[in-house]
Write a protein that binds this DNA or RNA. Structure first.
Lengths: 126, 126
DNA sequence: ACTATACTGAACCATATGGCTCAGTATAGT
DNA sequence: ACTATACTGAGCCATATGGTTCAGTATAGT
């Protein structure tokens, strides 16, 4: 698990910008030059180049310079470990809230039997 | 789609730090005070508080102050829209690479029939 | 040869991030 | 009342981010 840490840092950071997410979607539709992307996202060439650089570092985009134009295309990473992390988190979340549900049920039971459940006592103290 | 943009920005940014991902996992195991988290992650109280703040902004963590201790627990968000984005991207990625596969097959076919496929010509030029 | 295009690199700017310390405030326990 | 604990807020620091402009370099097209 731990060895993926740096990779996750970098990819999630790359994904935390809507322009960059947009670029990924755009490249899904087909390859594009930096100029074309810059126009599409209303941004300077240099600005777009930086974004592409970050996506390249995250290996989400691959670029190749042919002649004077640098063509960008989707990289080979399919966000598998990121998806795995999210899946794992959701499982954990479900388990956690199932556990809470059990707790709530217990409290209800106790409340019905007792008429002075723990929960109320602490609330009154505050 | 677009209305989720800011939310995605914030969550992915929150997830782009391994300490914060660790905190989420930890809270999955049970609620914890800021002090406990700070100890667990070998960090100053203030440092941990900032992280928790960022997780709160992303609504991944909920906190409540009882007496002098602030207890942190998992928030209600299950990372659904983030998962959805990733799923969507993977689909797009698959489609894209299926399309490339088709292209490669075409080139192979042409190559077999022709013995001088386009691809090679460009390579030699470089 | 000349000109337009496509990128590249350096430098700047404002703001954010990830950490820290230090000086508080508020509450718990005795 | 006193002391220890748990947090809080301000402020510092170094570095990163998201953008820009401006001055190049390299290549394409005529």
């Amino acid at each position: 698990m731990a060895q993926y840490s740096r990779r996750l840092d970098i990819t999630f950071a790359a994904l935390s910008d809507s322009t960059r997410r947009g670029v990924l979607v755009q490249l899904g539709r087909g390859d594009a030059s930096i100029t074309k992307l810059a126009e599409l996202f209303h941004m300077s060439l240099t600005g777009m180049k930086k974004h592409v650089g970050i996506l390249e570092d995250a290996r989400l985009v691959k670029t190749e310079k042919r002649g004077r134009v640098r063509t960008c295309e989707l990289g080979l990473r399919r966000l598998d470990i990121e998806t795995a992390w999210l899946e794992n988190y959701r499982e954990l979340w479900d388990k956690r809230f199932d556990a809470l549900e059990v707790l709530v049920q217990e409290l209800k039971q106790r409340g019905a039997a007792n008429k002075t459940p723990n929960k109320c006592r602490t609330k009154v103290r505050a």
